[in-house]
């Protein structure tokens, strides 16, 4: 447990000072939020109607950006070998890496999402729900994306492979989250969408580490 905490802190430190993962994702997110009004036109009604959905889709894509390197770097520089020769199961290592990814990238993006949505004209009353959806969704994106990253280990064009593997798995959380936000805006029952999103994130957190560990072992042989 102490070792996993150490690994978590190391992953966070690497994310922050090794290539600007969080800054890259938040920057990408800010760029999308800025470009949308330019592309859709400045009509406030149209922007307000599309803002929550756009904020949500941009979030899904932004969290994919930095996933490619989640296992790749450790695989290339031999750290994965070192990490594997330990009593700590690789499944736990994979889960910790995804949690660190979520802390480094998902959490800043969750804070940026309501800001972007409100800036684009969404009702401020939506902000807490967008924050909650972004936090739970970000967790799901980290685990699902981590599975893609582990499966793509050792292949050239890994980024492309990740997108192809991960995109279908990202659709349910995007639908659940987007549905919850839409329903809330229309004063309809919205809780089920959020609960399904949380359930999806938890299921991903439970199952993805098994897949990631198996994929890592496969790549190491």
């Amino acid at each position: 447990m102490k070792l996993l905490w150490r690994l978590y802190r190391r992953e966070l430190a690497l994310a922050w000072n090794g290539g600007g993962g969080p800054l890259l994702s938040v920057g990408f997110y800010a760029a999308v939020a800025t470009l949308v009004p330019l592309a859709l036109g400045p009509s406030p009604e149209r922007l307000a109607a599309t803002a929550p959905g756009l904020a949500w889709v941009a979030l899904a894509l932004a969290s994919l950006l930095s996933l490619e390197r989640l296992f790749e770097r450790d695989f290339e520089d031999g750290a994965l070998d070192l990490i594997a020769l330990s009593p700590t199961p690789l499944e736990a290592v994979a889960a910790v890496k995804c949690l660190a990814q979520w802390t480094a990238v998902g959490a800043p993006l969750s804070l940026a999402a309501p800001l972007a949505a409100v800036a684009l004209g969404a009702s401020p009353s939506l902000a807490p729900l967008i924050l909650a959806c972004a936090a739970a969704g970000g967790l799901a994106f980290a685990f699902v994306g981590g599975t893609g990253a582990a499966l793509a280990l050792g292949s050239r064009r890994g980024g492309l492979l990740i997108a192809v593997v991960v995109l279908p798995l990202l659709t349910p959380p995007v639908i659940f989250g987007g549905g919850a936000i839409d329903a809330f805006a229309a004063h309809l029952p919205w809780r089920s969408g959020l609960l399904l999103l949380i359930a999806y994130a938890l299921a991903a957190g439970g199952l993805a580490p098994l897949a990631m560990a198996a994929a890592c072992r496969n790549a190491q042989s």
Binding site: R6, L14, G18, D77, G78, A79, D81, L82, L85, S86
Partner: peptide, 27 residues
């Protein structure tokens, strides 16, 4: 079992101290 291969598993952006302490603690 210790394995030291051609790839040392060291992160270039981190200090030698933190990498050594991590590798030692992990093993």
């Amino acid at each position: 079992v210790h394995l030291v291969g051609h790839q040392e598993g060291l992160k270039s952006a981190r200090s030698a101290r933190s990498e050594l302490l991590f590798q030692a603690a992990w093993t």
